[in-house]
């Protein structure tokens, strides 16, 4: 199927066999989806956010469907970095795919501790999550201010042995300024976008559906925002971009690549169809075959 087609991409010096990745928080650490797809086919598995210690997460309800999208307020429930090292790395290493660890923290120190703990571990890339809208401390609080984006990126880079992708929040006035701040801090690549803060009210109960009141909006509803932000950042920043937000199929992924994305991550679509990542990959291949594209660099950022 991939004859004469080079899908390989480079993120901070790490070669991925194809641009299809998973969006953090929608794919666990891959185990559940291995029942549905061959993980060997993915460019990379981006695992759910990992902190120094286990986090309990937010009270339920944590999920609310919206028109063409969904809100989540999971609150980064996770079992901590030691569990990840002992259980998830050995599991994922059985597959021929890259491991990207989404790193979360409440403080600068916590981000650095996770990254340092992972520095001698067999993982390929770090994704610095400074954009989760569902926690009270850390997360998006780091990601919406240029100074803190630059500071946390620079600090984490001191401890990181793997290249660092900084995952940006769309909940900002100017995404380009934030992207530049991450670049100044020494980011090797950027992921965008994380979810957009939203809210749904149950009109019968007259209260928010989510216990957290607000949550992060994802899914097809946010795709135009993601594409626009990738487009803007690609024009001004040299770093490779992992584009995400509402990618449901190959055409959506191509849109992000045309806007300038090097890699693409599939998130909410995994909940709609557990085989979505493979469908996206096949869709990219079909598009390339249709237009005689031999390498995605031919179309990357040409819009």
């Amino acid at each position: 199927m991939y004859k004469d087609l080079n899908l390989e991409i480079d993120i901070g010096g790490v070669k991925l066999k194809n641009p299809v990745m998973t969006a953090s928080g929608t794919f666990g650490a891959g185990k559940e989806y291995s029942e549905f797809i061959d993980l060997n086919q993915l460019g990379a598995v981006v695992v759910k956010g990992i902190a120094t210690n286990p986090w309990i997460g937010n009270p339920p309800p944590r999920i609310a469907e919206t028109y063409g999208g969904m809100l989540n307020a999971i609150g980064l429930q996770n079992l901590g970095v030691e569990h990840f090292i002992n259980e998830d790395i050995p599991y994922l290493r059985k597959y021929d795919t890259k491991i990207v660890v989404n790193v979360i923290g409440k403080t600068m120190k916590e981000y650095c501790e996770v990254v340092e703990r992972l520095s001698d571990q067999d993982v390929d890339l770090i994704e610095l999550n400074i954009s989760c809208p569902n926690i009270k401390e850390g997360g998006v609080n780091f990601g919406t201010n240029c100074n803190s984006v630059e500071d946390v990126t620079r600090e984490v880079k001191k401890y990181a042995k793997q290249p660092v992708i900084v995952k940006l929040s769309p909940n900002v006035t100017d995404i380009v300024e934030i992207a530049k701040a991450a670049e100044s801090g020494g980011a090797d690549a950027l992921s965008l976008i994380n979810t957009i803060t939203g809210m749904v009210i149950d009109i019968n109960k007259r209260k928010p559906i989510l216990a957290n009141i607000t949550g992060g909006l994802s899914g097809p509803a946010i795709k135009p925002i993601g594409v626009r932000m990738v487009y803007e950042v690609h024009k001004k920043v040299k770093l490779p971009i992992v584009g995400m937000g509402g990618i449901m199929n190959g055409d959506d992924a191509i849109e992000y690549i045309l806007a300038g994305a090097t890699g693409v991550a599939v998130g909410t679509a995994n909940f709609v169809n557990p085989r979505a990542t493979i469908d996206v990959l096949e869709g990219i291949v079909n598009y390339c075959n249709k237009y005689g594209i031999k390498d995605l660099s031919e179309i990357r950022g040409i819009v």
Binding site: T26, K48, I63, N72, N270, F271
Partner: peptide, 10 residues
């Protein structure tokens, strides 16, 4: 959300 254990919603 997903029904298969990955979204950690329910």
């Amino acid at each position: 959300g997903c029904g298969i254990g990955t979204c950690v919603g329910c």
